[in-house]
Design a protein around this nucleic acid. Structure first.
Length: 106
DNA sequence: GCTTTGACTCTCG
DNA sequence: TCGAGAGCCAAAG
C-alpha cells in the first residue's frame, strides 16, 4: 500500500466530532513525514467528496496541525471550519477551541 | 535520479 | 507571545 493510501486510511478512522493532527497520523505510521502527510491530503483523490460525504470520503477536514490551528484546505478554510463546527467542534479564526478535548488519538 | 514543492513541526531569539 | 530558520519526508516533474 502506498504512503498516501495509508494516510487516507488513517484519516477515515477519525470519528465524527473528533480531529487529529498530521503528526499523529505520521506517528501512527511509524514515520516522521509530517509534511508528506499534508502533501498526501492535498493530493487526495477523494477531496471533492468531502462536502458530499460520499462512501469513500476522507474526512480531511478533521486533520489539523499539532497546535490545533488549521492551514490549507482544497475547498477553502471557511468551508473546512464550517464542516468541523457542524460536527460539534468549535472553531475561531481557523483555530480549534478545546483542542485537547476533541483531539483523537490512535 | 536529482530538484522542487508543501494542508508540518521544533527550536530560538 | 510570535515570527523566522532549519530540519523533515514522500511525491511529482
Amino acid at each position: 500500500m502506498s504512503f498516501n493510501k495509508k494516510v487516507w486510511q488513517l484519516c477515515k478512522k477519525v470519528p465524527r466530532g473528533k480531529v487529529t493532527t498530521y503528526k499523529e497520523i505520521a506517528a501512527a505510521m511509524r514515520t516522521k513525514a509530517y509534511r508528506a502527510v499534508g502533501n498526501a491530503m492535498n493530493k487526495n483523490p477523494y477531496g471533492l467528496l468531502i462536502c458530499g460525504y460520499g462512501k469513500n470520503m476522507v474526512p480531511c477536514h478533521r486533520v489539523v496541525d499539532s497546535t490545533g490551528h488549521i492551514h490549507g484546505f482544497a475547498h477553502g478554510l471557511k468551508k473546512k471550519s464550517d464542516l468541523l463546527r457542524k460536527e460539534g467542534i468549535k472553531i475561531r479564526k481557523n483555530k480549534i477551541l478545546e483542542f485537547e478535548k476533541v483531539r483523537y488519538r490512535f
